[in-house]
Design a binder for these strands. Structure first.
Lengths: 123, 123
DNA sequence: AAACTTACCTAGCAATACAACGTATAGTGT
DNA sequence: ACACTATACGTTGTATTGCTAGGTAAGTTT
């Protein structure tokens, strides 16, 4: 019989809270400059709580391209493997702005909800 | 040939951004009082941007109970159908506090990310 | 030429949210 | 007695997401 952890994924909910926000984070990281895949990944690790794996970022980038929110350009040289640089399209820029506006309201709601839970004494 | 909307679900990403946060919102709504299913749903509609359907709330409540985060009590009278009241357990209270702490940091990250996107002129 | 590094990509799986249904109890109208 | 409505709880199937665990490709180092 295998000792199988039943509810022993104490940070499962952490993963779930991040769902959907990666798309916004990636679009936001491309606002001012073109970046390539792994570079985006590193920006997210440094600047946010959104630590992700490669297998997470690339599918999202493919999706964004399929939706016409970003466009790509291969660049050779500089490094071993050629890099695929991603750039926001105008549609991507609009989407990023719309998501940011929605997110702003959403964050306000959540802030109000969790305020009482953050009071000292609640552990 | 069918006229099929390709990327015409303009608010699909809205749904995705909410993923995972309902659990926190529900736990938070139960902090001070016991509520029953539909009452929780109405609180969320009034107090937050988290407009949800019944088919969304009940499975989550079942999950929370299975995890031991809430406990239930049937109450008859008052209304037609007996109501199932949900109450936080001590484990649920701890979880709510932990999620709130994590969420607080997460909200900060997202705020920093989207700040440039909210500047006027971005539409 | 073998090993390492950087970079990109692709199944298959688990978890979530939702629409659309179904069930149960009580009250109201005729 | 019968249909109708309102309230409340529950379930099934589908679409979407993110992740683990692999694989491919190009160039540099030893």
């Amino acid at each position: 019989m295998v000792t199988k952890p039943e509810t022993d994924q104490p940070d499962n909910w952490e993963r779930q809270l991040k769902k959907g926000w990666l798309e916004l984070a990636i679009l936001a990281s491309l606002r001012d400059e073109s970046l390539y895949g792994l570079e985006i990944l590193r920006r997210l690790e440094e600047g946010t709580d959104l630590v992700v794996a490669e297998g997470t970022v690339y599918p999202i980038l493919s999706r964004l391209k399929a939706e016409g929110l970003v466009e790509t350009k291969w660049v050779e040289g500089e490094a071993g493997h050629p890099r695929k640089y991603y750039r926001l399209t105008s549609a991507g820029r609009s989407r990023a702005a719309a998501m940011a506006r929605y997110a702003s309201g959403f964050l306000g709601s959540i802030s109000r909800i969790i305020a009482p839970l953050l009071a000292k004494g609640e552990k």
